[in-house]
């Protein structure tokens, strides 16, 4: 934790000026354009990744120099946030969806680490359980379901699909995204100086022990003050479960109706039909005949 004298100094105005943020965002944007999957060679994508990494490191270095303290919480903060941001970039830039999902697990774990640093252990555990445990397993299942047939059809499992290897409008998207990022960072670092905590500052341990433990206090808050919202959340989960079942079931019905009509190409009576033949019942093929006299 930083010293209180540091708190309300004109912190970012001198060091992290809008121009710095702008230049860093432009550099990071160019790196992202090069890194995103497209019809480029692998070496250019590597260069894009390095450019992006360099912009990130410069940003971190500026803030670390301003913050001056590099001990205890700060070390873990930079570790976790670095892992989170780098693996998030890999999520959107990796050409194979399975790897994107696995890098997303890494992002979730790093964000859970950030939550632990913020004294919310229950949220960290819930995040890992729900995201890395439940949601991501569903994603990986769907990726396997959806890509199995595709690789079998084209026979190019290693190459990946065309829509995975070529991204859509990377320049425009990077411009929009990094403009938004620049504006947000500018507001966060430059315009946030008037912000003061509403309550006088307590240590986290005090606030948690007042509520009788982190999880207990959160549960009391949820079931006392937010009861209606909690019930609504439960209803929402039930409705979505029913909806997912119906969505999955609807296809099965349509699939059966699609495969049912059987196209018969052969004429019902072949030209060289034997006049003594008898049609065989129990089969749909009209050519199947029995010849009792032969």
């Amino acid at each position: 934790m930083l010293s209180p004298t540091f708190t309300f100094s004109p912190l970012a105005a001198a060091v992290l000026s809008p121009v710095t943020i702008l230049v860093l965002c432009v550099v990071a944007g160019v790196g992202t354009i090069l890194l995103l999957p497209g019809k480029r060679e692998t070496s250019i994508r590597w260069i894009g990744g390095l450019v992006l990494l360099a912009a990130l490191l410069i940003f971190i270095a500026i803030i670390v120099r301003e913050g001056a303290a590099m001990r205890g919480e700060a070390v873990y903060f930079w570790l976790f946030s670095g892992i989170a941001v780098i693996s998030a970039i890999r999520v959107i830039s990796h050409a194979k969806p399975v790897y994107s999902a696995l890098y997303f697990v890494l992002t979730v774990l790093a964000v859970a680490g950030l939550f632990v640093l913020l004294w919310t252990e229950f949220m960290a555990a819930a995040l890992i359980l729900i995201y890395a445990g439940a949601i991501l397993v569903t994603y990986v299942f769907v990726i396997m379901l959806a890509s199995q047939a595709h690789s079998g059809a084209t026979g190019k499992a290693t190459e990946g699909a065309e829509y995975d290897r070529v991204s859509r409008e990377p320049t425009l998207a990077a411009a929009v995204g990094f403009t938004l990022m620049g504006v947000l960072l500018f507001v966060i670092f430059d315009k946030a100086e008037g912000m003061v905590p509403a309550t006088p500052e307590k240590t986290p341990a005090q606030a948690i022990s007042e509520g009788g433990g982190s999880v207990r206090a959160l549960g009391a808050y949820l079931f006392n003050d937010q009861l209606l919202t909690l019930e609504l959340a439960g209803v929402l989960l039930t409705v979505s479960m029913v909806g997912a079942v119906i969505i999955a079931k609807r296809y099965v019905d349509e699939g059966e109706t699609e495969t049912q009509p059987e196209v018969i190409v052969t004429p019902a009576t072949p030209l060289d039909d034997n006049p003594h033949s008898i049609p065989v019942f129990g089969t749909r093929n009209p050519v199947a005949k029995a010849y009792p006299e032969n």
Partner: peptide
Amino acid sequence: AILFCIGLIGFMTRRN
């Protein structure tokens, strides 16, 4: 903010 914007860029660029 950085995580949000990365997600936004991914949403606009990826086709899968």
